[in-house]
Computed example of a mutant assay.
Amino acid sequence: MLAAKPDGVLEAIAADLDVSLQNVLDCLPSGAALRADGGAFEDVWSDLTTWGDITFVVHTRDGVFECKGGIPPGTFGRGYFNIHGDSPIGGHIRAENCRWIYFVDRPFFGKRSCSVQFINKTGEAMFKVFVGRNEDRSLKADQVARFEALRDRTAGII
């Protein structure tokens, strides 16, 4: 399916094959999806707070929810990673459920897409952070550089 439609929706492929998103990520071409251990959650989150406006996505079988804004800082407490600050992105994350963090760089509907995808213990996405786009739909160059630096520093730490 990936060969037939390399820029398709990964969750749709996973659903069609009745496999986890992680299974699909692991089948992407070499270099398109590199991963780090979920134990890097706090370090990765901290780096993301410096990127500026991104697109934060929660994709379930029942909907896709997108929010644009900056990643606010967070702290651990009462069993959650609690997000603080003045941003449309907020809430509480069970960070201990994060098994893997994937750095995904692949085409999506004909355009380059870069995302950091937080995958839980069942192989499904907890949420994703996408590099922002300019008015002309091109990726923000400064965020691509931050994405690549974070990936290069973090991916492979398993």
Rank of each mutant, 00 (worst) to 15 (best):
K111A: 07
G38E: 03
C114W: 02
I158C: 08
G132E: 01
C27H: 13
C27F: 12
P72Q: 06
L21Y: 02
A125W: 09
A145D: 05
V64N: 10
V144Y: 01
N134D: 06
S138E: 05
N134M: 02
R133V: 00
S138V: 04
V19K: 04
V44S: 02
N97M: 13
R61N: 13
N97T: 15
H59E: 13
G70I: 10
F130G: 02
E148D: 09
D152E: 07
I89F: 10
D86V: 15
N82M: 07
V116C: 09
F130K: 04
V57H: 07
C27Q: 14
G156A: 02
F103E: 02
D53R: 15
C27E: 14
L28E: 04
I89K: 10
A4P: 12
V144M: 03
R133N: 00
R112D: 06
F103A: 05
S20H: 07
V64F: 08
T50H: 04
D26L: 02
G39D: 05
E148M: 04
E96G: 12
N97L: 12
L48A: 07
A32P: 07
V131E: 00
K111V: 03
S20P: 10
G91V: 09
R137T: 03
I54A: 05
R61P: 13
W45E: 03
H84Y: 10
V9I: 15
W51L: 01
V64Y: 08
G63A: 11
R35D: 14
R94L: 09
D43S: 12
I101T: 13
T55C: 08
R153L: 01
Y80G: 12
G69Q: 06
F118A: 11
A141N: 10
D53K: 14
Y102T: 06
G90T: 12
V129T: 08
F127I: 10
D26N: 06
F127Q: 09
F81Q: 09
R151Y: 00
G74D: 09
I54V: 15
G91A: 11
I71W: 04
L139F: 05
L21Q: 03
G74N: 11
A15H: 12
G8D: 11
A95E: 12
V44I: 11
V116N: 05
A33D: 02
W45S: 05
R35K: 13
A14R: 04
A145N: 05
F103L: 05
